[in-house]
Amino acid sequence: MSKQTNKIAQRLDIDGDIERVFSVLHAGGIAICPNTVGYGIWGGSSEALERIYRTKERGPHKRNALITDEIGQREIHDLEPHKQAMIECVTVDHDLPMGVIAKYRKEHPLLQKVDPDLLRASTAEGTIGMLLNGGKIHSTIGRLSREALHPVFGSSANLTGTGTKFRLEDIQPEIRAIADIEIDYGLRRYHLYQRSSTIINFTDLTVVRMGSCYDLISDVLKRHFKVELPPDPGRNANPSGHQREFQLRDFAEESVS
């Protein structure tokens, strides 16, 4: 399969790009796509995700994120109503991107299609993570994946530990080389944060990563729900924003022992 790229024109062909990306993913391939919080690399099969994992040189404690939409998140995550309201207040009412981790419903038809080894590599202690409000391509691919019952997982398009890339040309050549299609929409919206998405574990409302829009998300949760998140020490003190970067290391080692 020869690599596909979108043409830089006066207008974006978003619908056409979505169709081409999903065709690649549905065939089990690899796509590099723009999100609001940077560029992501997604795989449409266990083999594709294993190739991404090896190329990125990811540690065993790293987890894939499920690519889905708002409906998929509500169906898959098993949350109390007030916590679901928090998520929707941030991502729908205030239109902010956010990574969400929560307990999941194992019986969901989409998850029933996931290879057991891939599911183990994408979950931890009964939780699964996903990015919400990542942009039109992200949410539409998530919807198509859910409707077709064809799971898609992904992560940031970079070598592990090198930071999120906000332009396609900043992604390392070895990462770009494994993609069957790449979509270039230029500099991403939240590049000024110089971090990937904020991630919150809604099982206990702990911050996993202080990322893009963390200040805005913190304000929303405090004003609407009286939930006070810890202050961000800043990029000089914590460039990646990770609070629990190696939390899953022991879990991962136990899983393979």
Rank of each mutant, 00 (worst) to 15 (best):
D69I: 09
R223M: 13
A102F: 06
S46F: 06
M130E: 01
C33P: 07
P116E: 03
D219S: 15
V227T: 15
Y190H: 00
M86A: 15
S196Y: 01
D93M: 13
R20Y: 01
K3C: 03
R223E: 14
D13I: 00
Q247E: 15
T140F: 06
I141R: 06
R188V: 06
H242V: 09
K83H: 10
T206S: 10
S2F: 14
S139I: 11
D215V: 13
S23D: 09
T127D: 00
I87T: 05
W42Q: 08
H26P: 07
Q172D: 08
L168D: 01
L229M: 14
R249C: 10
Q112H: 08
T91K: 08
G154R: 08
E253N: 10
L205E: 11
G142N: 01
D69V: 00
T162N: 11
Y53R: 15
R189I: 05
V37R: 03
V100Q: 04
E57L: 11
P81E: 13
A157D: 07
D170S: 15
H61C: 13
V152P: 04
K165G: 09
H191D: 08
S197C: 02
A124K: 07
M86R: 11
R11C: 01
F246C: 14
E47D: 08
G40Y: 07
M210L: 13
E70Q: 13
D15R: 10
S45T: 09
L49N: 04
G28K: 03
M1P: 10
Y190I: 02
T140W: 07
P97M: 01
E88R: 13
S155K: 02
I200H: 00
T127C: 01
R11T: 05
Q10K: 12
F153E: 05
E50L: 07
S156A: 15
A148E: 06
D170I: 09
D180K: 06
H108C: 07
L168P: 02
I181A: 06
S212Y: 10
T127G: 07
A179F: 10
E245Y: 03
S196K: 06
R120W: 07
D17P: 05
A121W: 10
E19R: 12
A48N: 04
L187M: 13
T91W: 07
D78R: 12
V100E: 05
K226S: 11
H108N: 04
V24N: 04
T5Y: 04
C213R: 03
D115S: 15
E57T: 12
D15E: 11
R74F: 09
I101Q: 05
T127R: 05
